[in-house]
Amino acid sequence: MSEHDPVFDAPNSSGRLFLERRGYRQRRIIDAARILPIVGLLLWLVPLIWPDVGEDGAISTSQATLYVFAIWIALIGVGGFLAWRMSPSEDVSGDETEQSQGAER
């Protein structure tokens, strides 16, 4: 089920250094999926630094609404794209990085 590289895969070792191209792509997509919520959170916290009513450059509700929803739609789009690109055969369990992290305690 997981990637097998005839050159770099040493049998019986989980510390593989290199993956073949497809596996590499999958890893980066997963990385992107990890980062997505953090990006979303930061963007949605931007309103915190908006000036208050009465100050210069105060934001109207319609502008705020457009901002929030635009980010929303963009995140949905990116999320959908990532879900689509994440290969369906990829067993969700098979990521070694998670394993090494889980075992560190």
């Binding site: 916290l45 309103p47 915190l48 908006w50 208050d52 009513v53 105060a58 934001i59 109207s60 509700t61 319609s62 502008q63 705020a64 609404t65 457009l66």
Partner: peptide, 19 residues
């Protein structure tokens, strides 16, 4: 959108803490 801005909730006055 114009109507929204013209209404009594037309200005951005959300408290950061609550947000």
């Amino acid at each position: 959108l114009e109507k929204i801005d013209a209404s009594e909730i037309g200005a951005w006055e959300v408290s950061g803490g609550r947000w």
